[in-house]
Design a binder for these strands. Structure first.
Lengths: 341, 341
DNA sequence: TTTATTTGCGCAATCGTTGTCGGGAACGTT
DNA sequence: AACGTTCCCGACAACGATTGCGCAAATAAA
């Protein structure tokens, strides 16, 4: 509460605040003896510089903000761990915010963190965000900004993502190689970067196996309550019926699994299931779920590194552009099936 | 970047900063016409008061800090959602930090958030924390502090927790009622509040069914990598062998499930399994897992409310004391078994 | 007309810290 | 004795916002 300030030290030692300040930072123009006195007293009184005052003065905070749609998601919490690891090493604090998949919350949160003078911002866009003008503004002002995972090509910032195309291609190819031909793709809103990339991988994999693309097998699923079940029902009703589900997120993968089990659709006998998700329990599910795993920690680390580069060398030499990190397919029970001869 | 300040407005309108400040806060001693001018100009220039400057001046920030061991844990992320809901309603920002189950990180994080002038702190202690003097200090200075979930009775702050005793009692009772007699309890470090409460519930349930307590069936498990498997092995080797596992956290529940499956111990035929966890996938596991669910959102909400009370009426009338919220037992496949006649 | 009162606004201090400037004392140099 | 250096240190302003005080002009009351 009543923290010790430089002023207190100055008063106690009969010095000016400037001298104390300089002594504490070891300036050469202060008598070594005086320095010692000040240092010792400061130590004894447990003096800590007031970061608020510093932020005000220097217009920086040595803190970076992270805005994710939600933290209750393994991909994001792992990414945050990656971010923290790098940031703390480089002397930055990390402040975590959730947009709760809401565009308004995202805008407000961005403004807040900027006015609280974070030195830079790491963002994964909310699913409602299609207009990125709130970020465009920041970027135009030269504010350090890095997007990860859910990015936007309307922004000329560094973008760190998993190789969604490749991941989706491999997942689809795996389903095709095990004889599936009617592969449903349950995915997230169409304007999101990851949706498009994954959809492209899915389509190209189909094409390379000469399987026609069927619009009816692709469903875009919002983030409401209990929206997955009905979608799965719709898909099951398509003719010819799907023989595999490829889903694009934790939530969809779990929702789909729950829905299929409830409807007693046998996995993998009747349909295969594979999710694009970092669930840590994929192994323990019933059946254990095949997944495409994103390198979440690595993405977080890289994003943090890029951001700190941006912050520290304020040159325009901003290394924008997209960094793609390979995703990894892990096959488990939910898609294991002898390839047809 | 170059944010508009009150000074800019003053200059542009040929007024003093005091007048602008007062006009913006609608002070009665400013000419309505002047007010209008200022308001409109501020609006047009998108003026936002600088929170850093305000924090410095008023020694408060309208922000509360939340420190949890880790966010990749459903209980904590739900609790955070509860906290955010209340805080935003009351005009506070929420800043989330992770201690990563490390005492040092916890101490550092507490210091940081305090020196960054959060108005109060919500903490769930790290598993390494047995010494709470870093918090005691704060509390003695009158700093608003509320503990939740993992608390300490060495601190005279409000404490919001699930009824761990009752939850553990019911879980154990359920196992007893389904004929289990050798119930292993795999739990977290012994100095933690929740460990003790749950252990007490477990013991009392045994006692009330006249089942002797066997020290050998209780194991305290650290937070390292791959520590659960060996513990499970040890427990399986005890004679007479356990016929049920009652675990005390997400991590232990999953670890235990994985270990038992790997060793091909039939659940629930050979052993029952029940976890004290808020896993959202308990339903989808193989087998689906019986759990004791903590009212995480509610705990977060209550904790936030208590904290804001503390902050706003700085009276000593601090409503310390413990609030216990009932936990709920959900029985699923992992413990379903006909009661023996 | 003189004296109160109200109205509207500016000055300056404050929060904690740093940076710029400048100045006194002690010393060395001619 | 007069001057230039060096060494230490203090005064002051600044960052953005709020606020107590005071002051001038306008209005009301005497």
């Amino acid at each position: 509460m009543e923290a010790v300030t430089i002023k207190d030290i100055a008063r106690a030692l009969n010095l000016s605040t400037s001298t104390v300040s300089r002594a504490l930072r070891g300036s050469y123009e202060i008598n070594p003896e005086t320095k010692r006195l000040v240092m010792e007293y400061a130590e004894r009184m447990n003096y800590r510089p007031n970061p608020i005052a510093l932020s005000l003065k220097e217009n920086r905070s040595r803190a970076i903000g992270v805005i994710v749609p939600q933290i209750a998601n393994h991909f994001f919490s792992q990414a945050i761990n990656g971010i923290e690891a790098i940031a703390y090493n480089r002397g930055y604090h990390v402040i975590i915010f959730q947009s709760h998949e809401s565009y308004e919350r995202e805008v407000v949160t961005v403004q807040q963190s900027v006015s609280r003078k974070v030195d830079g911002l790491l963002i994964s866009l909310s699913s409602q965000t299609s207009d990125v003008s709130h970020l465009k503004e920041l970027q135009d002002k030269g504010f350090p900004l890095v997007l990860f995972d859910r990015v936007s090509d309307q922004l000329d910032t560094p973008r760190i993502i998993a190789d969604n195309y490749q991941g989706a291609f491999e997942a689809t190819e795996h389903l095709l190689q095990t004889g599936r031909r009617r592969i449903a793709h349950l995915t997230i809103p169409p304007w999101m970067s990851i949706t498009q990339e994954r959809l492209a991988g899915y389509k190209d994999a189909l094409a390379s196996y000469d399987v026609p693309f069927d619009e009816d097998l692709v469903r875009y699923c919002g983030f409401g309550e209990d929206v997955v079940g009905p979608m799965v029902d719709e898909l099951l009703a398509v003719t010819p019926a799907p023989d595999a589900f490829f889903t694009a997120s934790d939530r969809l993968a779990l929702g789909c699994l729950a829905a299929l089990r409830k409807r007693q659709v046998a996995i993998p006998e009747t349909v295969s299931l594979i999710g694009f998700t970092n669930l840590n329990v994929a192994d323990l599910l019933s059946p254990s779920m095949s997944t495409v795993i994103q390198p979440a920690v690595e993405i977080g680390q890289l994003a943090a590194e890029r951001l700190i580069e941006l912050i520290e060398r304020k040159q325009k030499a901003a290394p924008a552009g997209t960094v793609k990190i390979p995703a990894r397919l892990v096959v488990r029970e939910s898609s294991i099936r002898e390839p047809p001869e």
